[in-house]
Amino acid sequence: MTQLAFDLPQRPALGREDFLVADCNAEAVAWLDRWPDWPRAGRLPAALAIHGPAGCGKTHLASVWQAVSAARRIEPRQVTAETVPALLEGADAIVLDGLTADIDERGLFHLLNLLGERDGHLLITAALPPARWAIALPDLKSRLAALPAIGVGAPDEALLAAVMVKLFADRQLMVSQELVQFLLPRIERSFAAVQSIVDRLDKAALISRRNITVPLARALLAGGNTENDKEGN
């Protein structure tokens, strides 16, 4: 009988102490540490937009800031022109984590204005810098382009290794350095790829009831490397 592998949600460690500071994210961390001394343009809230590829730690950074600022987290899809006043009621610091192109433009515009009027604070995370979003409403476009945007860049090897170890540790798994050194040169050098290989290895180990070792990893990579060869991303 085969072992079933459930897709149990992982509960990653999201404290400030768990965040790995490296070249690619040092400036974003410095911006967060500098809060509440964030610059404002015009009547905009004191804001910061963190952008970067999937899995690079944006949500982690947002959680860190949320903890120090006691910010309210608002789901981007809840934002509409009608809901904004109620969503902001009594809050002067807001986190919008994972903004995507389908954001309600009027809603976001009102959110920026209302929060700006009360000298509020805002942290946005998204894949792209706000100046690059396809926004139709010119009033919103110009406000977004005026926000400080900081990229979380491509990771270097040491950080990828660290993230890999952290992702295994989030699953209560301790892996050898040999395994990490084996995997790193063989996967795409992105956070998303690290996340995916950790997922797949964890699952493969559960199903085959083997420990996570180099031979297991080799077998997995040989079995199908399509995911990492994907173009784009």
């Binding site: 500098r34 964030w38 610059p39 343009a41 015009g42 905009l44 110009s142 005026a146 400080p148």
Partner: peptide
């Protein structure tokens, strides 16, 4: 060139960057 708000935002960013690094 688009508008003053974006100019001010740009200036804010380079000043903050200089201070941070």
């Amino acid at each position: 060139t688009s508008n003053v708000r974006e100019l001010e935002g740009a200036l804010n960013r380079i000043v903050a960057h200089a201070q941070l690094v």
